[in-house]
Design a protein around this nucleic acid. Structure first.
Lengths: 357, 357
DNA sequence: TCCCCCTAAGTTAGCGCTAACAATTAGCTT
DNA sequence: AAGCTAATTGTTAGCGCTAACTTAGGGGGA
């Protein structure tokens, strides 16, 4: 047993918790067989302990656990996958990762997945096309992922995936899903309602909307809810412009709105476009909120520091990611079928809104 | 062979390229053996074709390739990993993923990795601590990743990893690395030099710096280069304040700077803090650039729409990710040892800088 | 012509794990 | 005390693949 003691010392020197074989360099990582030998049982018994099977006596279990700890044994994922046909991996298909929302959703998913003992494999789409989606999905299937989380906010993606009939659960983030795909989303309609409601309460009668691209699920949802809220209050819903989520497009639209001053308030599809709008208004001498009120959507960390600080709708993306993974795990481990969940948004009132002049 | 034709039809109906077994539901995926049988060769020959071994006759190779295509065969990763002890997976250890830079670096890495046929597994750190890092690394080793990309911009991370002596290559993004860890970074010193040089050229004599946290590699690097640039121009480098990268901290510092008006120009560690600064200046009636010039760092997509549009230093994060993966692949596949690469930054002049009054 | 060598294949033996089945033991019942 | 059951452990086979070894055919040089 001197070799063993040597090994333990080696690893501790590295500052790593007891015996964890984080280094590959050592001759060979311990296997079930090694643990079994050390504990004086069969390899199968060790496997039972690891997998928490019943019918292992307490004494044996403890002996095995001790041996595992002493050797710093870690199960070989490849071998396990080979026989169980499970990879303990969840694929996350994402796009627009440089945007605040998608990035934070990924964070939430990863956190929840790792906590549950899953690996997270990602495929980032640079451009969203059928080909790119299929390619990424194939990439995931090659890896035999146990499930796929889709965080691609375009409507067509969902259709493409539904049609695919993969053999693994698929959860779409930012969409309610359909009968083939589960969904987890922030309630966009409610969010738009909060924003528009706030403006109506302040006394605004003519409220425009700067929508996101209409091939985005959220873009459509917010625009529709804006329209519905106005109509149910007996107001006109005809001032609708469409941007591409970027500050640049918000700026362009802002210049037009600064020229045509028919609205006293604008509900903007996201905070970035709102930033562009603020910039354009400032340049044109249109004062916010005195001349025009502006409401955004997302509540990015910076939004409180715009000029003026932006009233906006907060989405809790991490919660979204967590919920998404709950559904995924239920599907993988309990075989639950398609389902969906909705996270409530929240209005954050700052200084870009006030009663009309 | 009718079963086969049936299968092909089935998959095509799903709209997927020829026979790709994207669905798990079908009885069983084809194996080497199945391909071999169909091509009338041994499974080993098929393996040779797949792995591009020499010593396979052209005729045989073509026959095998046809069989592979017909059956839609895809190699089983787990089985392959088990025997080769390679997982074709690169682990990306990331933190601050909701920030522009890290998120885009991840994008670059993922793109390059997938192109090279690697899977990308991620572990996002919510908080950077030794424990969290070790935990994530253990997670990766459990998965037998072939290499680890570290995109955690804290100095201590690098130390922790160097000390670990993992058996796989490690590449740090945003750092030059050390003798155990390779590095790929944007030249921070050069970037700070560009920014400060620009201000000096405009005629500024007293130039302050709002630094990022000093436990961040970039935070230190930019502050040091700022100081060096001033001193080599014979100017004072005593106006140094430290924020936490957030717009909020920039705002707080901005309020102080608006009160103490000794500097005519401020070089800010990133665009977000610069945004906070602009906000504070605006509130205090300090005009930018008339009263004070402001330069940021990063060139986020929004920076051109701040009030005023921000002069800043652009970092090409995707290029960074690509370079990083080049180093990684060289290490994995050719056994290259530790090395490093540097990407050049670029000054983007907008409207937040001008000659002092 | 014979032998050697080189090319193109086939055969065999695991990689480390779990599932399925077999065997042993202990604890009761009759 | 024999026989049954249930709990615990061991044995065997095989997941799909590659590495290493083996075998079968051709040329080319002596």
């Amino acid at each position: 047993m001197p070799a063993l003691r040597g090994r333990a010392a080696f690893v501790l020197r590295r500052g790593v918790a007891h015996n964890s074989p984080m280094t590959k360099s050592n001759a060979r990582l311990p296997r079930l067989e090694d643990v079994a030998e050390r504990a004086g049982v069969s390899h199968q018994t060790v496997s039972r302990v690891i997998n928490n099977h019943p019918n292992v006596s307490k004494a044996t279990r403890e002996r095995v656990e001790a041996a595992i700890a002493e050797l710093g044994y870690r199960r070989n994922t490849a071998a396990r996958s080979l026989v169980t046909r499970r990879s303990q991996t969840i694929g996350v298909l994402a796009s627009e990762l440089s945007q605040y929302g998608p990035a934070n959703t990924l964070l939430g998913v990863e956190q929840a997945a790792r906590n549950a003992g899953y690996f997270v494999s990602i495929a980032a789409l640079k451009s969203v096309s059928r080909e790119a989606i299929f390619d990424a999905v194939r990439h995931f299937m090659d890896q035999s992922v146990d499930g796929i989380v889709v965080s691609v906010p375009h409507s067509e993606t969902l259709l493409a995936l539904a049609e695919l009939k993969l053999g693994v659960p698929v959860v779409a983030v930012g969409s309610l899903g359909n009968d083939a795909v589960s969904g987890a989303m922030v309630d966009q309609a409610r969010g738009a309602e909060l924003a528009v409601g706030h403006l109506i309460e302040l006394g605004h009668r003519r409220i425009g909307h700067v929508a996101g691209p209409q091939d985005w699920i959220d873009g459509v949802a917010r625009a529709e809810a804006w329209s519905a809220a106005l109509r149910s209050a007996g107001l006109e819903d005809d001032l609708l412009m469409t941007g591409d989520w970027s500050a640049g497009s918000g700026y362009e639209i802002g210049r037009k709105l600064a020229a045509d001053r028919s609205a006293t308030a604008i509900f903007v599809g996201n905070d970035q476009m709102a930033l562009g709008l603020l910039r354009a208004f400032h340049e044109a001498g249109v004062r916010v909120p005195d001349d025009v009120s502006v409401v955004g959507f997302d509540d990015q960390p910076e939004s409180g520091y715009f000029t003026p600080p932006l009233t906006t709708v907060r989405q809790d993306f991490e919660e979204l990611g967590r919920r998404c993974l709950d559904i995924m795990l239920a599907a993988i481990e309990d075989g639950d079928s398609v389902s969906s969940t909705v996270v409530a948004p929240e209005l954050v009132v700052r200084q870009s809104t006030s009663a009309p002049a």
